[in-house]
Write a protein that binds this DNA or RNA. Sequence first.
DNA 1: GTCTATATTTGGATAGAC
DNA 2: GTCTATCCAAATATAGAC
Lengths: 200, 200
Amino acid sequence: MLEQPITDRRSKRHEATKAEILEAAWELVRAEGLAALSLRDVARTVGMQAPSLYQYFDSKHAIYDAMFAQGYRELLERMVWDDTDKDTRAKLKRRARLFIDFCVEDPARYQLLFQRTIPGFEPSSESYALAVESLTYTRTELGKAGLTEPANLDLWTALITGLTDQQISNDPGGDRWLQLVDEAVDMLLDHLDTKKRRRK
Amino acid sequence: MLEQPITDRRSKRHEATKAEILEAAWELVRAEGLAALSLRDVARTVGMQAPSLYQYFDSKHAIYDAMFAQGYRELLERMVWDDTDKDTRAKLKRRARLFIDFCVEDPARYQLLFQRTIPGFEPSSESYALAVESLTYTRTELGKAGLTEPANLDLWTALITGLTDQQISNDPGGDRWLQLVDEAVDMLLDHLDTKKRRRK
DNA sequence: GTCTATATTTGGATAGAC
DNA sequence: GTCTATCCAAATATAGAC
């Protein structure tokens, strides 16, 4: 009897406000840097007073945690969306490009998801599960393309994150390293082909 | 007449204390994370009160700046020290290994020197000059080994920082990506050889 | 050159009124 | 659910005594 339609409407409003708060947090983090986020700023951006935020998030870390989860959900979504079958090389190049674009378009997010830089922050197990899922998914995809050996997967991740890192650190907004993605993937695949052939 | 020997002794002592402060800062940063550094902690570690530090450094950022310079001086020193002539491939492998070891052995220093993560900190022009010098030196060395084209140098830096980044982020204390350094360098050099041969 | 005392700011978080 | 008021802690930095 207490469960009325109004409850749904309320919780919907609640979720909407949470989303609004997170959007403000992303905005600030992109502008001021990940570590510079403050609750007062977030509140001001959404037109609230800081204490009101506690109706939606238990702490500042809870906000980081929600952003962490949101980031990985977005990445997973893009990967699944992109999942068409095609020539292996072309597919791997697109995969690489998809990941690098995702990182480069929002360095603050990259920092949050892939680097350990906020002192004291660790994702909740629920959020962390999303990170694991995205890693597993990537591994499966690479496996389908013939990249199965652990060492080869490690070489892949090193190459891709290296391009990402350099692009973000040394040419933000440009494409100096983005241009090299296709060549880099070819280099890696050629290398693995040669390795295989030699072993026979 | 005012320049007496005592002045030298005093300034020597002063420099020694500065060095002591920096050593304490490194220690803390390695233990607590780069961003977590506080003047109080530094002072306590060297057995001082926080305000006394201002006799040696104008601000917290000045400490970061001195650490930044120290880091690059150390890197330059190692690079020059390692500078023996030898087979090109072996030399490049050693160069790669030297850089990656330098980064991996102190992730906090890596963060300070190569990533932009402390909000508001920018190295002074004197310190930045050391960063440029180390980059120039590296480029010269790679040039001697035949790596001259900008795109190829960019591919090199991407590969090396990628290995570094993965080793630090995903296997701290281990050698999962360190093991791959030689293979990665071979991969890159083979690729460049092939490229050159094809163009002829 | 080091200290104590303190100013100042900032920011996370809580209590309680409305 | 939002606010005001406030607490508390931490941290940079300065003033001035010794």
